[in-house]
Amino acid sequence: MSDIDKDDVTGVDTTGHTWDGIKELNNPLPRWWLWCFYLTIIWGVGYTIAYPAWPLLNSATAGMLGYSTRAEVAAEIQRFEDQNAGLTSALAEVDLTTLADNADLNRFATAAGASVFRNNCSQCHGSGAAGAVGYPNLLDDDWLWGGTMEAIVHTVEHGIRNETGDDPRYSEMPAFGEILEPEEIDQVVEYALSLSGADHDAALAGPGAVVFEDNCASCHGEAGMGDIEQGAPNLTDAIWLYGGDRETVHETVVHSRFGVMPPWSDKLSKAEINAVSAYVHQLGGGE
């Protein structure tokens, strides 16, 4: 072993490393620092015994303290549910038409409804409730089955045209391709387009009015204003569930449409149904 070089000025050993003539001194570390280092090792060993640590084949060691982040989250969720238990039971029993008078409950219902909506409804109606082709936009002021609080609750509970629910909202438009002649269909399509003021062939729309009165008016009404009792769309407004262009309307008349919504009364609690109904009602179209 070579001699240890001592720095002349300080009398301290050097490490033998030199950069540009600057020597690195090997000053001793304070001893308590070493103890702290040993302490951290002991602490680390204790920690892996107390807490989940060592990975095994299928899981990890559980730790003596039985700590789990999952359990912590579950406890936290439970804590909030307990905290909100009063509001939740009030929400299950409240007359929704008077909800606006109770600011706290209203705020709770809207917030809870928003989360119910994102979990259960957004898959079809979209995360912003703007719907999609075939799935109604819940933000606008046009409702197939009614936009009062009561009507919305009924739709959520029973659903539409499903076979699983009890007493769903039900109506069925015939596929007129099997009933009407092709030229009659062309005529009634032009008439339907004329109802909302869209571009149309007036020559065809004239006879189309007769076809409409004979085949369509019983549900969509004489003036084509629709009927929420039967879920028949209003054909005179600017809103189209499947599209208002000539081709789409033609397809609708020939093949008809059959949108389905599941019933939610068996999956959601009364409080959740009230919450999501209140949420949908305050999106801008509630009646």
């Binding site: 070089d5 001592k6 001793p28 570390l29 304070p30 001893r31 620092w33």
Partner: peptide
């Protein structure tokens, strides 16, 4: 200066 004896790596608090 040089020596054969390395000084201690750790120092007690004075």
């Amino acid at each position: 200066m040089s020596s054969q004896e390395p000084q201690s790596l750790y120092a007690a608090q004075e």
